[in-house]
């Protein structure tokens, strides 16, 4: 099961715990660590895995990192291709995994709206939106040949609000970055960028303290914060009911090229 440490992964983990209770989920968690994540995410990840006694595989694109891959040097597009997509395909191959369960939702992004719950990938991990298996009722076809794989998205039909309501109802632990507090941020127009991992600064630029929170979590440079005073899950839910912007608006990677997520997914991005 892909575990990105974010709120959707936290919900997935809880669903897996419940599904197999009282046994533990019979699969390991896989985290693709780009090395550009928030340190709070890594701490949370290690704590949860230890508490639940689950096997955690943290995989990084060691070779690309050694060659100096970073969002600052490569740009976000190429960086994602190397440190996320590349690392994911590498990890799936190394583990011999023929299925990977992920927390992606169809409401997140346009190209995901047509994603299947069981999404077939060829032996290179590629997605072909034109030849997907039809999915009727709740009958899923998980049959594959050797070398091929299936990505499974159990949260396909959940919305962002559903996720938060479930977190509230089930009292699921989440990374504190989702809650508002004063944090040092680089303020660039409407965007708030975290200074963690030392992104290149504009001349004379300095982090300033802003009361903000993360609406979705990824690498520090590509995850913009939003100005917010929501300090509890209930606050977040009422904030979401009023909000006029989508959750991935601050995600740099979705917008770097028109139709860009679809392109990434064709290549094997989750």
């Amino acid at each position: 099961m892909l575990y990105s440490i974010g709120k959707d992964s936290s919900v997935m983990l809880r669903l897996a715990q419940k599904a197999f209770f009282p046994a533990k989920p019979p699969f390991p968690l896989l985290h693709i660590d780009t090395s550009y994540k928030f340190h709070e995410m890594i701490e949370f990840r290690d704590r949860i895995a230890a508490e639940l006694g689950l096997q955690l595989i943290a995989h990084s694109a060691v070779k690309s990192l050694a060659e100096g891959a970073s969002p600052f040097r490569l740009g976000t597009q190429k960086c994602c291709a190397a440190l996320k997509t590349g690392a994911l395909l590498e990890a799936l191959k190394q583990g011999g995994f023929d299925a990977a369960i992920g927390g992606a939702r169809r409401d997140e992004e346009k190209s995901r709206a047509k994603e299947r719950v069981y999404s077939f990938r060829d032996n290179l991990g590629q997605w072909d939106p034109k030849s997907q298996r039809p999915e009727l009722w709740n009958i899923y076809n998980g049959r594959i040949n050797k070398g091929e794989s299936i990505r499974v998205f159990p949260l396909s039909n959940w919305t962002e609000l559903d996720v938060w309501e479930y977190i509230e109802a089930e009292n699921i632990p989440i990374v504190p970055l989702y809650f508002a507090r004063e944090r040092p941020m680089l303020v660039r127009g409407d965007s708030l960028i975290s200074p963690e991992h030392n992104p290149p600064m504009m001349p004379g630029e300095k982090p300033v303290n802003v009361v903000c929170r993360m609406r979705s979590l990824g690498c520090t440079y590509c995850t913009g914060a939003v100005r917010s005073t929501a300090t509890t899950v209930a606050d977040i839910i009422s904030e979401l009911r009023l909000i006029k912007k989508s959750e991935r608006e601050n995600r740099v990677i979705d917008h770097d090229q028109e139709g860009s997520m679809e392109q990434k997914k064709r290549e094997g991005y989750f």
Binding site: R106, D107, K110, S111, A113, K114, P129, K130, Q132, S156, N157, T159, E258, G259, E262
Partner: peptide
Amino acid sequence: DGLRAEREQGITIDVAYRY
């Protein structure tokens, strides 16, 4: 109309789910 191929053709080609 999500996918790029459809934009080019100006039609919807698969099942899209909206919430």
